[in-house]
Structure formats: C-alpha cells, structure tokens
Nucleic acid binder design. Structure first.
Length: 108
DNA sequence: GCGTGGATGCGTCAAGTGAT
DNA sequence: ATCACTTGACGCATCCACGC
C-alpha cells in the first residue's frame, strides 16, 4: 500500500470500504463541548482545520479512484474502437481486391 | 531461492477549471 | 474571490516474470 502510515486499513484487495469518514483522530465529543457564542480556542481551530484537511484528503482519494476508473474505461473504449476499425479496414481491403479482380477481367 | 526491472494500483499534492 | 471537482505528476508498495 501507499505511505499513509495508516495500518488499520487495507484488505489486500484494495477494498475502499476500509476508508471511513470518521478517522481515529476525529474525536467529535471533545470539541463539541464548547459553550455557544464564545470564540473557539486555538486548539479548537486547529482541530477544525485538521478535520477539514482530512475531509479534503478523503474526497480527493475517492476522486482519484473515480478518475482512474474513468480513464481505464476510456482506454478500453478506444481499444474497442481500434479493433472495430481494423476489422472494417480489413473488410474494405478484401472488397477492393475482389473489385479489382472483377474489373481486370472485364477489361480483358 | 534471490535480485531485478517492468507493470499496476494507490494516496497525495498542485494546478487548472467551472460554478456560485 | 472562493469553493468543489478533475486530473497530471510523483513517490511508494506490491506483484510477476525472468535470468542467475
């Protein structure tokens, strides 16, 4: 796996269900205890920033996965198209050959 | 069995882009 | 201007085939 240092993850299949929104560090119960209306302490601000960062990273992780999936699909699609066109090309060449033979016999 | 190189997949970062 | 999303690039881990 990658260098995340997160050893809790990772079925060898790369199963994405191992990733969760709730990371071990997100102890929601702690910062929820602030009194309403008061300014957040620097500690709370940094925890909020950390949570935002983790959320961003999780979203991007999923986005990258989706991006790769789409790219693979696109490449497969192109390969299929190549196969179809090659087949079509072959058929047209054969057809041309046959027509040439036919034409040469007529002109004799 | 062991080292090695190529292929593949993953997570992360950074830059670009469109929507608000 | 800001935000969310997309994607190329990078580094890393793992797998597999190959030569020794």
């Amino acid at each position: 796996m990658a260098v995340t240092g997160d050893e809790t993850e990772s079925a060898p299949t790369g199963d994405m269900s191992a990733y969760q929104i709730c990371s071990p560090t997100s102890g929601l119960s702690q910062e929820m205890g602030s009194s309403p209306g008061s300014l957040p302490s620097p500690q709370q601000v940094s925890e909020e920033a950390l949570r935002k960062r983790e959320f961003r990273m999780m979203k991007n992780r999923e986005a990258a996965r989706e991006c790769r999936r789409k790219k693979k699909e696109y490449v497969k699609c192109l390969e299929n198209r190549v196969a179809v066109l090659e087949k079509q090309n072959k058929t047209l060449i054969e057809e041309l050959k046959a027509l040439k033979v036919l034409y040469s016999h007529k002109t004799e």
